[in-house]
Structure formats: structure tokens, C-alpha cells
Nucleic acid binder design. Structure first.
Ligand SMILES: [Mn+2]
Ligand SMILES: [Mn+2]
Ligand SMILES: [Zn+2]
Ligand SMILES: [Zn+2]
Lengths: 140, 140
DNA sequence: ATGCAATATTAGACATGATCCAAATGCGCG
DNA sequence: CGCGCATTTGGATCATGTCTAATATTGCAT
């Protein structure tokens, strides 16, 4: 499941993005890229320290910021209380289960916008975020 | 500009939504509904106390929560650090200037999405939030 | 009007996510 | 080995937002 090849893939990935390798960064990368889930900083900290060793909160935040800068991650802002970190950097959108807080990817091609609105002058689109909030169909 | 008719309009609006009137609630409603801007709790607190009297932080949060429950407002989650309160409760989407943090409404009709993705079984759409992140076209 | 119970407001304590800091550690290389 | 620089770290600090328990106001019956 967790062979040396996985580990090397993560190492390559970090290096290709200009991130110098450290033990902690590899641990964090493993947590994020092995399951490709959307996780909060707290969840990442817990998982990293559950599997292996002691990585500090400060290092988790430092590393997430670094990974963001290097384009290894993106943020998803859907919950007012915490940021989710998304290991999928391909353009895509999200289903957000408001009861569980769980995020699911929607491929960009699965949604087509017709008639993008006209932008104010001199403004350019940096990105489009679509969140479809869902909940279980109410049982009485 | 700020005649008694405005004030009465706000009062009517609150009462039609089942909100019992208080001086503080009317002040907060005036700040929100007079300019229809997207404001954070902090900004609302500052504006309320700039124009008139002393309304406490607790009351601002209490009132915003009440207005949300009563359908007078909605939240907009685009900034990891603070919630914006939106006095426009009609279905619509947003332009988000990432450099200034300023939000602008896009009428729901201005965007059409084709091919909504298929939802997991027993799940129903609660809402769709579209945020178009923009920035000034600026070569430094 | 007066009294009374329910509702609303408030100051300040508290919770939480996230950032900052200054010290300690680790690493690459001469 | 030892030096210089990047990285890590605990703990302090900050910012939004919530809670509490006391006070003030309101609506209403008498
Ligand atoms: Mn925050
Ligand atoms: Mn918060
Ligand atoms: Zn995603
Ligand atoms: Zn809006």
C-alpha cells in the first residue's frame, strides 16, 4: 500500500515544484497526495502525527503555505471556520455536503457556464469557483 | 437622502420577516439595507457606531444571526478570515476582486450552467454558489 | 400607571484557527 | 570538523466569533 515508490513519487513531485525535501514535508505530502482528500490544517496535523512522528503545528502551516506558493495545492473556502487544502490543482469545482462538511470534486468539464457576465473595465478573471451545496433528501 | 421613509421601510421589512423592532436592530438594518453593500461584522459594527450610538459587538453578532434565520440576509464565504453579510437575498452570484476584497453581485440570470453533474443518491441541491475571482489586468 | 415576565442588550471572558517570534536543530559543503 | 543558512519548533500572540451572567428594555395584564 505504502511502498517506497509512492514515497519517491511524492519526493519527485515536490522537487519538480522547487521544494527542497525534508522529512516533515514528505510526511505532509504523503498525507495529502496519497488519498487526495480535502483536509483542514488540523486534520493534516492529526494524520501526520498519527502515522509517524512529531511534526509541529507551525511546520504544518509553514509547509501548507509553501506548497500553495509552489502550486502543489489550492485552498477551498467553503466553511467560515477553516480552510480546506486541495491536492488537486487541476481546474475543477466542488460538491459540498453541508451536513458532514465533506468536499467532492467535480471535473471542470462537468459544468459549462453560458454567458459569462461582462467584467468591469481592466479587470480579468483569475478563476471561477463553483460550489454546489448539497444535503441528504429530508426523511420525515 | 436618509429620510424617515427609509427608516420606515427598514422597519416594515424587519416586521414582515417576524423580527421585533429595537433601536439597535434598526440601526444595523439601516447600515445594511441603505447601501446594499457586502459587509463584514466588524465593518457593520464600525459603521453603526460611526453614525449614531453605541451598539455592542455581541448585539451585532446576535442581530446578524437573527437576520440570517429570518431570511433578511445571507452569508458569503470567500475570505478565509471573515464572513460577509449580503443584504441581497435574491438568488445571485458574485464577482470577487481578490486585490481589494470587494464583492459585486451578478444576477442569477447572467450565468447559466449547463449539465449540472449527477448527484450522489439521496442528495439534493441546497444551493449553488459561483464566485468569479477577478483582478486588475496589470503588468508590473 | 404599575408590576411582571419575557426578551434584548451588554461587557468581558472564552474558544478556535491561524500567525509570529526567537531559539534550537539540522544540513550541505569547504 | 565547523560554518552558514534553511528549517523546525514551542509558545506567545492575534483575529473572528461565541458564550455567560448580569442588566436593561419591552409587552402586556391588571
Ligand atoms: Mn482565520
Ligand atoms: Mn472564525
Ligand atoms: Zn477539489
Ligand atoms: Zn451579493
Amino acid at each position: 500500500m505504502d511502498g517506497p515508490s509512492d514515497h519517491d513519487d511524492f519526493a519527485d513531485r515536490l522537487q519538480r515544484h522547487g521544494v527542497t525535501l525534508t522529512h516533515q514535508r514528505l510526511e505532509i505530502a504523503a498525507v495529502l497526495f496519497r488519498t487526495m482528500e480535502h483536509l483542514s490544517a488540523d486534520q493534516i496535523l492529526a494524520r501526520v502525527n498519527a502515522r509517524n512522528a512529531q511534526v509541529s503545528k507551525a511546520t504544518v502551516y509553514n509547509t501548507l503555505k509553501l506548497f500553495l506558493e509552489k502550486g502543489l495545492l489550492r485552498e477551498v473556502i467553503v466553511d467560515p471556520d477553516r480552510v480546506f487544502y486541495d491536492p488537486n490543482v487541476a481546474p475543477h469545482h466542488h460538491l459540498y455536503d453541508v451536513t458532514t462538511g465533506h468536499l467532492t470534486d467535480i471535473p471542470a468539464e462537468a459544468i459549462t457556464l453560458a454567458r459569462l457576465p461582462q467584467l468591469p473595465d481592466g479587470m480579468v478573471v483569475e478563476g471561477v469557483d463553483i460550489v454546489i451545496r448539497t444535503r441528504p433528501l429530508n426523511p420525515p
